[in-house]
Amino acid sequence: MFYQTPLRTAVLLLFTLACIYAAFTAEYFGVEILTEIIILAMIVLALDLVAGFGGMVSLCHGALAGVGAYIFAIFTAKLGLHPLLAMGIAALITGAVSWVIGTICSKTHGIYFIMATLAFGQMAYSFVFESSYLGGDNGMAGIPRLDLSMIGIDLFDSKQFALLCLACLLVAYLFAWRILTSGLGRSLVGIMHNEKRSRALGQNVVQIKAQVFALSGLILGLAGSLSAQHIMFISPNLLSWTHSGEALVIVILGGLGTLIGPIIGAAAFVLLKHEVSNYTDHWHLIVGIILIIVVMAGARGIYGEIEHRIAKRCAKRVQKEQAPKQAKEKTKEHSLSHAGLKKEH
């Protein structure tokens, strides 16, 4: 079950402060990287929502964010709609598309779920790639940014744009938090832990999964429309399955099922990528090896590992304090389980 622990809140606040600090102190290139991190963080947050709490390992989340970007581009660059309205539409349509994908894929499990989401992601990719209306391989240029000059914000200033993205990320985090601590989110975690029992309890498994997938899609639509505004140009490459795979990698590196972990993972991933590319072209080799090591070591990820260690230390302290009481309970439990074992054999 998801609980917004003080540690998680502290890390989120720290991350927010670090972003604000970076936005004000870093030079142009640094702020661009910051924006990249924040948008990526939204995508992996959305992925953690379904993968970390619903066991839905989606290989189409990158593509869905790309869908959001294209929808934003269509409604602004092609149809001339106000960017704010287009952002809302992009989020809603991406959410609806996600709902359809979620409904269909929720009936499959394990590797078939992964393949099914991959198929839908690739379908979107090929569609965009082949569509001459959407510019095909060449992509689309001339995408406008939101105009907030009315309230004195100039989003063509990269610092202010980065802060807008940060605000969106925080809203997305609060949204995901709310979902996970709602009835729907609780049910989803139950389904992840035991789908068969959830059905036997009367949970509408497919609907619950599909709805959370759709809500995750809302975040992706928002993230996509921000990334379209960030570069002001989009290409089908945004929807490539390697992006979805990369998002999954980041979730794992940061800490699956912790919500804040993947955000940290996104920061670590992007920073490491830029750092490594100063020395070598072979960034993929390094990330590949790190990924293999992390997964084989048990896949707790950066934040997951920290949380695990702190929890272990706390448990020890509590145990020390309650040692006498616990010992008593232990023996009682032990005799019970012993009785159980005896009967079984």
Binding site: M1, G183, L184, G185, S187, Q207, I208, L215
Partner: peptide, 11 residues
């Protein structure tokens, strides 16, 4: 019938 609430915590 609170397992599908998507705003309030069922627990």
């Amino acid at each position: 019938s609170k397992s599908m609430w998507f705003w309030k915590d069922s627990l």
